[in-house]
Write a protein that binds this DNA or RNA. Structure first.
Ligand SMILES: [Zn+2]
Ligand SMILES: [Zn+2]
Ligand SMILES: [Zn+2]
Ligand SMILES: [Zn+2]
Lengths: 181, 181
DNA sequence: GCTTGATATGTTATACCATAACACTTATCA
DNA sequence: TGATAAGTGTTATGGTATAACATATCAAGC
């Protein structure tokens, strides 16, 4: 189970601090080599693209690194801000194009509930993600949705609907906030 | 299984016609008394509010009627347009407040994937909705998500996460578009 | 009735999210 | 090396949602 925080959404998390690796709150990797974990994910993405003849361009790579580095769900404009600071782009389409690519390749996921993006916790391996979103602190975790996906796919088949993708997003209380309440 | 169409979203359904009851496409109620079905849902909402001391105000009632009448997923601004035409409100908060109320009471659902709202197909009875969204024609159906919800709730419990609400939204091909393909 | 607090509405302004469109560059391959 | 596809830079705009504050309405107790 991976925990991320999101930085800038409407409510109730506008004022949420933006924890980094080793920071407060729901960071899961309290004592791992985050630099190495970023490198591993980027390397995996690189190999994936190389094998398929896709262009893992500097911009796309950098956006993935930013998502991995933040280790939390981020809005497209959060990412754009980082890119701008680094001179890698200044207009929304720059961020959205890179994010579209990363999502299409499975290196990142979009969380519809909060209009945010998060690096995949599984290095692009085939999987069915579900997201657990804390309504108090806005931390986000990626969980396995295999059984739930199977259930909804079966239900849909009964209605003649052919499922291609499933978004499962649960809202509730993360362990920390549940304990505080 | 209930089918709705949505009227104004980004892609790929910008140009989608806005089917009404008895109209084309995925309307389920091809031969029922839609006027009566609207009345029944409104009456149920009225009773629900009366029992709880909630104010089922004319605005809220009218927004529910609009959703029921359209019999499809609608954006907040679609609804606002209707309200404006009828002299019942002209600014975004008017629509959003009514929608927030309806969603909170279970009379309507929000579909995150397409930023749209739809009248509940079960007159507010306790249930776990999942939505099936056709990526070609943007039709939307409400299905039962009980087993899937159970699965994801169990998975979350394993992570110490306490689930309160689950949004399950499947994207794929509706029967009609699957057949056409 | 009148006060009072809670709830709902009217309105302005603004913030936030996402894409269309077009010019230009870079990569790929025959 | 010319043709084609893919990626990037940039401007402008469209679509979604809320903050904030003034006003009105409702419900309950005095
Ligand atoms: Zn993932
Ligand atoms: Zn939390
Ligand atoms: Zn009907
Ligand atoms: Zn369809």
């Amino acid at each position: 189970m991976l925990w991320y925080n999101i930085s800038s959404i409407h409510t109730p998390c506008r004022d949420t601090a933006t924890p980094r690796h080793g920071g407060p709150a729901h960071a899961r990797f309290q004592s791992h080599d985050h630099r190495a974990c970023i490198a591993a994910a980027v390397t995996a993405a690189d190999a994936h693209c190389r094998a398929r003849g896709l262009h893992f361009t500097p911009q796309r790579r950098r956006v993935l690194e930013i998502l991995l580095d933040g280790h939390r769900a981020m809005g497209a404009y959060d990412i754009l801000e980082r890119l701008r600071d680094e001179g890698l782009g200044s207009q929304p389409p720059v961020a959205y194009r890179a994010l579209d690519f990363l999502v299409a390749q499975g290196f990142a996921h979009k969380i519809e509930r909060i209009n945010a993006f998060v690096a995949c916790a599984h290095s692009g391996a085939e999987h069915d993600p579900a997201f657990l979103i804390c309504r108090v602190c806005c931390a986000v975790a990626e969980a396995e949705a295999g059984p739930a996906r199977t259930a909804i796919t079966a239900a849909a088949r009964g209605a003649g609907f052919r499922v291609e993708r499933v978004a499962i997003e649960a809202e509730g209380l993360c362990p920390r906030c549940a304990e505080a309440a």
